[in-house]
Amino acid sequence: MKDKTSNLIRNLINSSNSIVAVLIAFLIGGFMVLLVGESPINAYSAILKGAFGSPTAIRNTVRFAIQVMLMAYSFSVCNRCGYFNISQEAQLYTSALAMVFVSFWTEGLPGPLRLVLMILAAAAAGALTCLIPAVAKFKLGVNEVVVGVMLNYLTKFICQHLIAFSPIAAKRTSSIVSIEIPEHIPVPVITVGAVLIVIAYAFILRSTIPGHRLTVTGKNKQFAQASGIDATKVLLMAAVTGGVLSALCCMGEILGYFHMIYNEFAAGMGTDGMTAAFIGNNTPIGMMFGSLLLGALKSGSVLLSVLTEVPTELIDCVQGLIMFFATIKFFNAAQIDLKRRRVVE
């Protein structure tokens, strides 16, 4: 019982870190609004209205929140075992390409079969892309960040090439996009699916053997190895899970909203997920709040430029500031724990 309360306190301390970070970011953002000669209250109420003011606004907020949340979970599951999943954008590009190519090649097959094939191809592509830096790190000893960053740019250029000069290119003069795919998934299905994924993720992490192995390996690799867990296998499985989660995010975007590949559609999505993961301190519920915050900022930014003179880029600045401060430990849970123990003694 005592252990549970101290756990609760630790969680509270950790989340207060994120809250302070978010507050500081909004405070600095407010000063930036003053710089343009507008009132910060007007600007923030415009964002709030844009995010929750109408059914359409709420729908947009939910859409962005789901997108950010899946990316956050993808980042966090890898981060738990010390693998920095920075190649998320590459995973999005490859799984999008896999979907469009499968849809292009399987013309004539019945619709549901095509959809299943596309989903499988996307998941496989995402997982494989996520595995490249992971294998480089755990088998070859190369820094995964180097490999991940290079992979992001490489796939971005390859994707641009393919949607401009290949059978899947839509020959339009105005912009480079891929051909439109006929398969759709209705938006409510995506929403429900995302919620189910979140519940499953939290359940697996908390109360199943693979989740326990992941936690143990993440905390101490040597200890895990000594207690009979094949650490490398667990780490690679985490990378596969991360890749599949990114691919799921991509499926939601392409099958639910875009129905084609836009040029650089994944730009910045990896950073969004990372920010949400840091706001939420890698806990399932915390990340949900983090992605809701970022989703609201994204959908609220639309009204910001309509109702006020403030440039929409305020959102980018606030997000950067949140990320900046979310990594600082204002209150260190371990230290406070130690102090409490000393007082008790």
Binding site: D316, G320, F324
Partner: peptide
Amino acid sequence: QLQVNPVICALSINTLVTGLTRYLLKP
């Protein structure tokens, strides 16, 4: 000094600067 993860710090600087330079063009 603050022992922040260098990768995260770098990425947040990139995000912040991209937003800030766009934003400051206006004022």
